[in-house]
């Protein structure tokens, strides 16, 4: 069982990050709030509890790898990387602006970034390469890759899924941020993923299913013993836009910045979440 104090502290941190996500997107007047708000609890636990990374040495050869395959959710990723110290906090307010370190979708030139996302599905394939290299070089590092449920409509996700099981990549942990919504509507209406857990199990993966906004469950899943010879997937059931009432499960906020009124309302809602906790 997860440490109660740790879970509470990480939950508080994640909600602070929610405010920063909104600020970053509001300042840039562009970006993807929905998927950033759904992923942030898991990302917070990963970076502040699990990942072996060194902010002062981003290219450290033995670091755990993190691949944000759903690269459009970069605001959530960037606020966490900044908080870890990979780059200065003020970079966040230059997000998507000319000459900025923080591109609309992540680039390898940004400290701490292991994968240049933006085209869905490709991070899964890239992670197979990272995990194979880890095996070839007898490295202990773990490759974590985060994908979305809308993203799972890309065929390459399943090509890579097959390959991971075939090559017995037990150094690979996928996280499905199953936030139920994609750009034009509910995922089950656009192209139903069906029973994700059964699908991944049938593809030869060890499957853990959790509430992706429950910090205790997230910590338990990340700390669970991996199965030898099998890749692991954590299916995180989440809510797109989590924490902001009018963004939750609303596909209109997949890739749209809030206006001033919406921004103020959203910040007030997150503030009350933080006060309650």
């Amino acid at each position: 069982m997860a440490d109660l104090h740790l879970a509470k502290e990480l939950q508080r941190k994640a909600n602070q990050f929610r405010k920063e996500i909104l600020e970053v997107i509001y300042t840039a007047k562009a970006g993807h709030p929905g998927g950033s708000l759904s992923e942030i609890d898991v990302l917070t636990a990963l970076y502040f509890h699990k990942l072996k990374v060194r902010a002062a040495e981003p290219e450290w050869a033995d670091r755990d790898r993190f691949v944000l395959s759903k690269g459009h959710a970069s605001p959530g990723y960037y606020v966490v990387l900044a908080a870890k110290g990979f780059f200065a906090h003020e970079e966040l307010l230059k997000f998507r602006k000319i000459n900025s370190m923080l591109q609309g979708h992540p680039e390898l030139s940004t400290p701490g970034v292991d994968f240049a996302g933006g085209s869905l599905g490709q991070g899964m394939a890239f992670s197979i390469g990272l995990a194979l290299a880890g095996k070839l070089d007898n490295k202990e590092y773990i490759v974590y890759v985060m994908i979305g449920d809308g993203e799972s409509q890309e065929g390459v996700v399943w090509e890579a899924s097959m390959a991971a099981a075939h090559f017995k990549l037990d150094n690979l942990v996928a996280i499905l941020d199953k936030n139920q919504v994609q750009q034009t509507g509910k995922t089950k209406d656009v192209m139903d993923l069906g029973d994700a857990a059964s699908k991944w199990k049938a593809f030869g993966w060890h499957v853990i299913e959790i509430d992706g906004h429950d910090m205790h469950q997230i910590l338990d899943a990340l700390d669970a013993k991996r199965v030898q010879g099998k890749p692991t997937i954590i299916i995180a059931n989440t809510i797109k836009g989590k924490g902001v009432s009018f963004m939750e499960l609303n596909h209109k906020f997949h890739g749209k910045a809030p206006n001033e009124e919406e921004y103020k309302k959203a910040i007030a809602e997150i503030d009350s979440l933080i006060t309650e906790s």
């Binding site: 490709q122 890239f126 890579a160």
Partner: peptide
């Protein structure tokens, strides 16, 4: 296997390593 997208994506991950 017969999976060219994954062939190229995996190749990229190995090269990045």
């Amino acid at each position: 296997g017969i999976a060219e997208q994954n062939l190229m994506g995996t190749a990229a991950g190995l090269a990045a390593s």
